[in-house]
Amino acid sequence: MKDSAPRIWRMRNNLYRIRYSKCKACGASFYPARASCIRCSSRDVEVRVSLGLGTLVEYTVLYQVPARMQDNAPMVIGVVRLDEGFELYGVIVDADIKDLRKGMRVEAVLRRLRVDGSSGLITYGIKFRPVIGAAHGEGSGRG
């Protein structure tokens, strides 16, 4: 398979950062970003970039993965609630499966999403891993 260069290029803003919408009318935050509010339908919304800190809400472990992702097996897929107030699915990395627990603090990191053989493009994008260090984001400078 050849990954499409134009497609990766078009998607880069959404691959590299978590862009969400914040409704100025009702205060709702939602992902992915869109022009009107999913709660009150107001079009007075602005696109923001998440700081990437959040909490693991739920997760599952995939042992059977697509052939081109075999090196990544087993893969952990989780629902993460970002501190800005919305949820999204993501791959959870750098966590031992036995240490995973709902409510653990995670942060968005840039990782390889796909590698197109030995000569094609490498697609980078956001995954999540447990936060590093004592400062867990809430109320700290890292927020």
Binding site: D71, N72, V93, V109, L110, R112, Y124, G141
Partner: peptide
């Protein structure tokens, strides 16, 4: 480095902390 890590992802992590 993990299977999905390379110089670019490592550089991005260190840079993010430096910018903070």
């Amino acid at each position: 480095g993990g299977v999905d890590e390379d110089t670019i992802t490592i550089g991005w992590e260190a840079s993010r902390y430096a910018l903070m």
